[in-house]
Amino acid sequence: MGIRKLSIICTFLLLVSVVEARPISWSGGSTLMYKSNSMFTSYYYHYSPSYKYSIGLEYMDSKHFEKEYINLRTTYLVDRKNTKLSQRNLYITGGISNESKDNFHYGIHGDWETRRIFTSFAYINKHTQTKDYSENEFQLGVAPYIGDYNDLHTWLMLKTKKDTINNNWETYPFIKLFKGDFLIEIGTKNSHWDVHYMVRF
């Protein structure tokens, strides 16, 4: 890759700040996710009436706030650019909790990917009864080999994120594997496992 291309990607990453990869399925598709990290464990089901948006319910077990609640979440595709070799997406997202009208979140996230490179950003504002905070996240990934359709696909990823509770950037590697309708991401930071599992149907 040329220095010019690399600098463009780095600039893109700096300028923009993904909650989760592929937050919307195909029209009529459903997605089931499990996510666990040092802050929370969640189970999230969403349905996509159209490729433009998804709506779903998430059971959240917040380890930090020691609370359990349910979020009603939605994601809308604001913009998508398809080219022969790449796809770029920009989403807005939001959710409200059954716990309280003061417990909600909203944000923006986007990604750009080719068959070799994946980049993404996210900026989410979270409001709770006791504390308001925001989360920033950037991801950069490289596929060590280019798999065909139905093959096992592997991505070596680097994630850096910061929330205004801990107020420091944490950067850690993780691996993303997917085959067919199944995707799993596994990473580790500060002796905590960061696991994300997804199935589409």
Partner: peptide, 16 residues
């Protein structure tokens, strides 16, 4: 097809 860069994203095409 344009934008068909990811296996996981292309699953819906086959299903549909």
């Amino acid at each position: 097809v344009k934008g068909m860069v990811c296996d996981f994203c292309a699953r819906g095409i086959e299903k549909t």
